[in-house]
Simulated scan of single mutants.
Amino acid sequence: MSRSLSYIAFIAIAFIAIAFIAFSILDINYLAPKNYIMISVSAQFEQLRAKGQAALIPFLTAGDPDLDTTAKALSVLDQNGADLIELGIPYSDPLADGPVIQAAATRALNQGTTFARVMSMLHSVAPHLRSPVILFTYYNPILNMGIEKFLQSIYDAGARGLVVPDLPLEESEVLLQPAAEIGIEVILLIAPTSPPERMKAIAEKSQGFIYVVSTTGVTGMRDQMAKGAKEMIENLRTLTDKPIGVGFGISRPEHARQVIEWNADAAIVGSAIVKRLAHEGGLIEVAELCASLKRAIGHVG
């Protein structure tokens, strides 16, 4: 019996030691006691450009596996290389999302995650983050709540940016104008199928940065980056000096490095983060991935 107890005690001590080492290396602090001044998306890009740095933008689905974990994950990402953080509001019909993020949204909704609960969580966490938070949601929930009420709610909660993947360019002004007045920057997406004149119109209207969708289809992890993204970035550089972020398909450090070498200003990583967070030990895995992604993009120029 004494040997069994000694063995159990040894295992427990070893586990604690491993956890301590991991948390020390990866700078994980769930309490995030510091209060930061919440800056805009544009201001963050300006600061990074002044330092010669590219931006890392990880994505989370709020409420997966639960909102307490989401709050911790926001702090973990913020402390391990994230420059901005995209937070997805779970929606029952996520047309732009691939299977990993769709499954995360389903789990979150099944957990009882609501817009109000996400805003309450964000309100408590956002003041402790250095990274501006960008909300990702679909257009229908915004219309159902009312545009100005929605925008004011997310601003008060601490969000400073907004991505609406199914927002038609032709209707964007209805959202862009009140958002600018409240202090929310609406980031518009450019797809590989966008003709040059449409790319120019989107670049002119997009606030904060321009979100380049690297490949056709939905979000998700891929083995390599679509080379068409390089041409899109090159074309955009002739149209605008606004920051360019590339997403859809970035899952590895080498992918992130590739788009920065193609002259993008930011790498956006979603499914790879969400997949790791979905199981036990996910916070440490997310911290490791985030840190490795930031090391990969390093300095630019």
Rank of each mutant, 00 (worst) to 15 (best):
K72Y: 01
E86W: 02
D68A: 14
A82N: 13
A82M: 12
L87M: 07
T61K: 03
D78I: 09
L56P: 12
S75G: 11
P65A: 08
T61P: 04
I85G: 07
T69A: 10
L56N: 11
F59E: 04
V76W: 00
D93T: 13
I89N: 05
A96S: 15
L77M: 13
S92E: 10
L87N: 05
T69I: 15
F59C: 08
A55R: 13
Y91L: 10
A71V: 05
D93W: 13
K72I: 01
P90Y: 09
L84H: 08
A73I: 01
T61N: 10
L67G: 02
G81Y: 05
A96R: 09
A96K: 08
L95E: 06
D83M: 14
A96P: 08
L87C: 05
S92A: 15
I89E: 09
L56F: 15
L60Y: 04
L60Q: 02
A73Y: 00
T70C: 07
L74Q: 01
A73T: 14
L84A: 14
K72W: 01
L95Y: 05
I57R: 04
K72M: 12
L84D: 09
S92H: 11
D83S: 15
I57S: 05
T70L: 07
D64A: 15
A82R: 10
N80Q: 09
N80W: 06
N80V: 07
S92I: 10
G63L: 13
L56K: 10
T61Y: 03
T69Q: 14
D64V: 06
A55G: 12
P90M: 12
T61D: 05
P65E: 02
A82W: 13
I89R: 11
Q79Y: 05
A71K: 13
L95G: 00
G88M: 06
T69V: 15
D64M: 12
P94D: 12
A55C: 11
G81Q: 06
K72E: 13
L60G: 03
Q79I: 00
L84V: 13
D64S: 15
I85D: 07
L84R: 09
A96V: 07
D68M: 06
L77P: 01
S92K: 12
